[in-house]
Design a binder for these strands. Structure first.
Lengths: 190, 190
DNA sequence: GCAAATACTTAAACGGTGTAAGAAAGCGAG
DNA sequence: CTCGCTTTCTTACACCGTTTAAGTATTTGC
């Protein structure tokens, strides 16, 4: 019987694809092994366990997402940059719901994907250079933007907005308008 | 052997408590049965299956959360109402992380918890009465607020804000200041 | 072309989910 | 009170996914 050619990288990629198809929570060692034409136990020669595999998928997703966001930012500033970044984020989550779900797992084990997380924060800070925000307001704004993007995408993909006829796409654009407005006119501390 | 007195209600409550202690994903029929001093199979006389139980916990959480938010809103308007609602939301999620996680599962099966979801949307609309927003801006703002609250709480509990010294509590207050500002000065369509 | 390293299979233990059959406890009516 | 019905719980079991250990096959390097 010829070898299947399993490697940690191919395993991670296959897990990511499977997650996008059937949901991150439904990615099992059995299903993955099936996809490779291999018995489940064979996977344990390449990854420590399922948790290890999930962390790898999370790192992959965060890295891909950071790449997309970085590409969207080149040559843009101000509201242009904000909108491009936000759309890159949201589009990735819609194209790759399984990967996006993976990216939400807690980044505990030291620093496997922590560097990717840093890239995201740095890019958000780069966007804010187009606005007039000094520390610590800048950090508050970074957190606000991150929350906004994640929250909107999260609720949208969970069907949380489905019960109202208003176009979700338009609400998204108007939300970005509102974010731009508040960044341009950041309120002073109470 | 005396009966354990299991009912769907007590089962749901115990599942919610267990979820807050060990995480919603780790609530198993076995663990629940152990807590009641009963064999796992006994639970299936009271709930159809685990999915059924999870939906019940989600409905409980959404209902409790709506009750808290409603209590926070009485006698308040404008920014007061916004802040009280937001804090009720965030405090509940921090006190009951397992329940909060349960509340995020997709509300597919017809309308078990859909009424609670409606209560949330209605309350958010009530807050917006303190601002000058007509439809469809109002719906956009409802979605923005919901995304903001969920996103912030979600990232905060996942440790997404831990890598920076800025006080997460202060960032939250400043974010609410920003939301209040943008609601008072909602930008017109481009 | 052989030895060592690597990939994969088989076998099995463990634990969770869920179903079916039966024992036992509670309940209502006479 | 007790007979019989309903409900609760147990036992037994089938199935699936995870993971380890031991063994077999394949590839690689010398």
């Amino acid at each position: 019987m010829a070898r299947a050619g399993v490697t940690p990288e191919r395993l991670t990629l296959a897990a990511a694809e499977l997650a996008d198809e059937i949901g991150f929570q439904n990615v099992t060692a059995s299903a993955l092994a099936r996809r490779f034409g291999v018995k489940p136990a064979a996977l344990y020669a390449h990854v420590k366990d399922l948790q290890d595999l999930r962390v790898r998928v999370a790192a992959l997703a965060l890295s891909e997402l950071a790449d997309r966001a970085a590409a969207a930012l080149v040559g843009r500033a101000g509201k242009d940059a904000l909108v491009a970044f936000a759309n890159a984020y949201r589009d990735y989550a819609k194209e790759h719901p399984g990967r996006y779900a993976a990216a939400q797992i807690e980044p505990d084990p030291e620093t496997p994907a922590a560097s990717a997380a840093r890239r995201h924060a740095d890019m958000t800070r780069a966007i804010l250079r187009g606005y007039d925000l000094a520390e610590p307001d800048q950090t508050d704004a970074v957190r606000m933007l991150g929350s906004m993007f994640h929250g909107y995408v999260s609720l949208e993909t969970q069907g949380g907005f489905g019960r109202h006829p208003r176009d979700v796409e338009v609400s998204w654009q108007r939300t970005l308008d509102a974010l731009d407005a508040v960044l341009r006119n950041w309120p002073p501390p109470a």
